[in-house]
Amino acid sequence: MGLAKYVIRRLLYMIPLILGISIVVFLVMYAAGDPIQIATAGNPSITEAQRQFLREYYGLNDPIPVQYVRWLDHFLHFDFGKSLYGGKPVNEIISIYFWETLKLQLVSILLAFAISIPIGVYSAVKQRSWFDYIFSGISIAGVSFPVFFLGIIFILVFSYQLGWLPSAGAHGAPQLWPVFGIQNPFLDELAHLAMPATVLTLAGLAYNTRLLRAGMLEVLRQDYIMAARASGIPERKILLKYALKNAIMPLITLLGMSIGFAIAGAPATETVFSWPGLGRAYVTAASRLDFPLIMGITMIITIMILVANLITDISYAAIDPRISID
């Protein structure tokens, strides 16, 4: 089957999945309660008439199926409606936060991927060496360390104790410059990016090295590696060409998944660093039950994950000739 046909079939297959997820999330949220009541509960001066007006304005008085169809109609026109807080269009809010999250996540995912390859391979080749023990120890500790707690430690050490790096935000305010002695806008951005990116890289690194080490150990035990060794192929070539190519498959799945999930951001890490990204926006939206914003971000993330899965599957076929697209 051709690639185009496969992609089209997979895209068509996504439609019921996306619809199903949107219906489930929509129903659960709207069955849970009246968002206007929740939004105005803390404000005693709001009258019932004003609440009624707000409900009318956001179209919350219609039956739920009508609301869903209207939401779906807007969704198909790439419009997620308006936030219940401040009435800003959801699209605008998402587009503000999207790039900050993407910047942070892409840097850390790619760094974690690149650094984990030499460590994972070397640990597997020198199994039970001091290098392996140290890095295996670090990576199991890294997997167990709550990522947001690592961020907290970083802030305590590098911001509060040493005063080297800013603890919050993605940019310093130019009118307050120099912040931490930085006046260059690019360096300022880099200084803000340094800690959250390092924390997320370390977290990803721990998972990747464990996965790659286990994969390499499994592959190196295979007969065809022994056959390659017996036929006198240099060890370096065996490792990098024959073993790594097979051992890296699970890592590529993980890479695909993490790029999909990257858009969800790391809500806790973004909150710790006050990073103006989608993850933190989602936490705020969830705590206020800002339904249109929650629906918008959830749908964006779902679609990104599905697309990333598709790309992963296609790249599988490109790397491994045993897997054919069908």
């Binding site: 999945l17 199903g20 997820i21 489930v24 999330v25 659960v28 949220m29 849970a32 309660g33 929740i38 999930f261 969800a264 809500p267 989602y282 936490v283 969830a286 705590s287 039950l289 929650i294 971000i297 959830t298 993330i301 779902t302 994950i305 599905l306 899965n309």
Partner: peptide, 23 residues
């Protein structure tokens, strides 16, 4: 199962936890 694999679970856990908090 596929639907549950695709769900951005942590985010939805937050929403559901919040709904129960409010109930």
């Amino acid at each position: 199962t596929e639907v549950f694999l695709v769900f951005p679970s942590l985010l939805l856990i937050l929403v559901f936890a919040r709904i129960y908090q409010l109930i």
